[in-house]
Design a protein around this nucleic acid. Structure first.
Lengths: 144, 144
DNA sequence: GTAACTGCAAAATATTTGCATCCTT
DNA sequence: AAGGATGCAAATATTTTGCAGTTAC
């Protein structure tokens, strides 16, 4: 994983620093999307809140992660699996938010559907967020 | 419109006050979704920022408006056209954000598509936000 | 060594809460 | 008159910015 992390950072001409490595590691090991707050929590008291802001911002700019809009205030970030390049995302997959465990995951294999728009509307990007119960929570039927 | 506004407020057992009437009026006359900031601007210096917060909150609780998630920080609100009742929204339509004029509109006539999810995923709500060029901006081809 | 990154402090913004006053019903 | 809504002040929370010190290359 170390190698992968370094590779991602170098490919995007970002210096390899411990903060960036740590944050990238969090994204790689958690399969779910993370909010700014999640990152602060999971990283422990390691680094400054400001660093998290700046790191997330540069990751988004470089196309390493993308943001997922949610109904409430929070913005979630998830790794771009595809060949996103600077300022050019290809996140045409759908996002799934589990109401039970709260995890948000990218369903990479499911493309956004074609939407039939009214006359004279032209779509450039379609964002789909599905709420429901995820695979893991479905299995363990027992409620908390 | 006055009558309509009063009717909506009364139906939801909210007192008919000038602040609420003004905000509801803004939603009714603008066909687009509004952010907290939009409302403050469009309402002039009429009332307090806090009142806007509280009014929007109670409107959402009552099901008069619903929130639309967007990729950036902002939360947008739009009127519920359907028979939304308290705590029970039926906003199964899609949202369209125009990249040119910035307006966000509810496409009431277009239902959210069926999404084929992986095994053991269960969807309870599907949220679709389409970015693109809206009808109005499409017509006037001349760029700004 | 230089440029880029980080952490701290502080500024700027945004949101929430308490309370006294005013408006609806 | 009573309860709810508003406005103000202030407490919190969030995000941004400047700058000096540190780290990566």
């Amino acid at each position: 994983m170390e190698a992968q992390i370094n590779s991602i950072l170098k490919r995007n001409s970002l210096s390899v620093t411990s903060g960036r490595k740590k944050i990238l590691e969090l994204f790689l090991e958690n399969n779910a999307a993370l909010s700014h707050g999640d990152i602060e929590k999971k990283a422990g008291e390691k680094f400054d809140r400001v660093t998290v802001y700046r790191t997330l911002q540069s990751f988004v700019e470089k196309g390493i992660i993308h943001s997922i809009p949610t109904a409430d205030n929070s913005i979630l970030y998830a790794l771009c699996k595809d060949n996103c390049s600077e300022g050019h995302h290809h996140d045409n997959h759908i996002h799934f938010i589990c109401s039970k465990c709260g995890d948000t995951t990218c369903l990479e294999n499911i493309s956004t559907p074609m939407i039939k728009l009214p006359d004279n509307f032209v779509a450039t990007k379609v964002e789909v967020v599905v709420n429901g119960i995820c695979k893991n929570c479905q299995k363990k039927k027992a409620p908390m």
